[in-house]
């Protein structure tokens, strides 16, 4: 299942400037369907900026970010989509979305890209169950007749709500939080909050799940559980995952494809094995020039 499928997300010439600061510079890469793609790099390399561009929170200064639903042949339509200046295009074989043209909420709603945050953003004062129901907002909104039928008490909404609760229950079971369904999310321990955030993102029914440092602050056991969860989600739903991570044990163990950034530029791109042995990557992490890598490695005993 870990086999490399067709391209799902294509990032081309992405550049993001904040005033005079160039956070991401002419970056191109892609993620394949069914892959776990990791985006790594030292602090300040621009990883989260890339994430924010993909999920619509930032408008990139330049570049194109496109995503496919359905058959890979829809990629042929990409240039005509760009030409026409539209946000997305739908053919008989599938749809194509140009994410940098879409506002953040539409990226999730229409292009079905879900995300989590580096500093967890749960609805702390709402229960776990409520958190997962909010994630199913858009489908429930339709079922409630855009509120109108719901206020009048039509049964169709009640049915839809109980289906949504079932879905939430299933996810709470999966992340092992079913016993705490009626507790406020803010009461959960840190590791559980991370899992809940992933469950919440999954409740939006995504094709691409973007995780911003999901293992940050987790201990070794929790981190291993997270690996298992991510692999099982990927295998069961054929979902593609994009993750930013510092924890190398997570990155090396579960990713199929790694992209390394430094100062907003891609310095390496390949399988975990290739990345592990790339002197450029080691240099960036150690903070020294390429030529000095061996010397420093010898000094620190690598």
């Amino acid at each position: 299942m870990a086999g490399r499928g067709d391209i799902l997300l294509n990032v081309e010439h992405l550049t993001m400037r904040f005033g005079g600061l160039v956070a991401v510079d002419n970056l191109s890469w892609h993620a394949r369907q069914g892959d776990i793609t990791a985006l790594i790099g030292p602090n300040g390399a621009g990883k989260t900026t890339v994430f924010n561009c993909i999920t619509g929170f930032y408008k990139p200064t330049e570049g194109r970010i496109s995503l496919r639903h359905g058959d890979a042949t829809v990629w042929d339509e990409l240039d005509s989509l760009t030409e026409r200046g539209k946000r997305h295009i739908t053919t008989a074989n599938g749809s194509l979305f140009q994410l940098e043209r879409m506002p953040d909420f539409l990226v999730t709603q229409k292009a079905r890209v879900a995300r989590t945050f580096q500093n967890i953003r749960l609805f702390a004062g709402m229960t776990l169950l409520e958190n997962l129901l909010v994630a199913q907002h858009n489908s429930l909104m339709v079922q409630s007749g855009y509120t109108l039928l719901g206020v009048l008490g039509f049964p169709s909404y009640r049915r839809a709500e109980s289906a949504a609760v079932d879905r939430a229950r299933e996810w709470l079971n999966r992340v092992g939080l079913i016993d705490r369904a009626d507790d406020p999310a803010g009461d959960l321990p840190y590791g559980a909050q991370r899992r809940l955030e992933i469950a919440r993102a999954m409740c939006t029914d995504p094709v691409l799940l973007c995780l911003d440092e999901p293992a940050a602050g987790l201990n070794a056991r929790e981190s291993a559980e997270l690996n298992e969860l991510l692999l099982s989600i990927r295998d069961q739903y054929g979902l593609s995952i994009l993750l930013i991570e510092h924890d190398m044990s997570v990155v090396m163990e579960i990713s199929d494809h790694v992209i390394v950034l430094d100062y907003g530029v891609k310095i390496s791109d390949g399988t975990p094995e290739e990345i592990r042995n790339d002197p450029k990557v080691i240099a960036a992490y150690l903070g020294v020039d390429d030529e000095d890598v061996e010397k420093v490695e010898a000094e620190v005993g690598l």
Binding site: T108, L122, G125, V134, N138, Y157
Partner: peptide, 25 residues
Amino acid sequence: RLPVGRAWEALREDEIACRSLGINT
């Protein structure tokens, strides 16, 4: 108890998270 009401409360809790869940804030 409707999605719009839960979205209001979610908005009060965290607007950015709402947008990340596809809610038109």
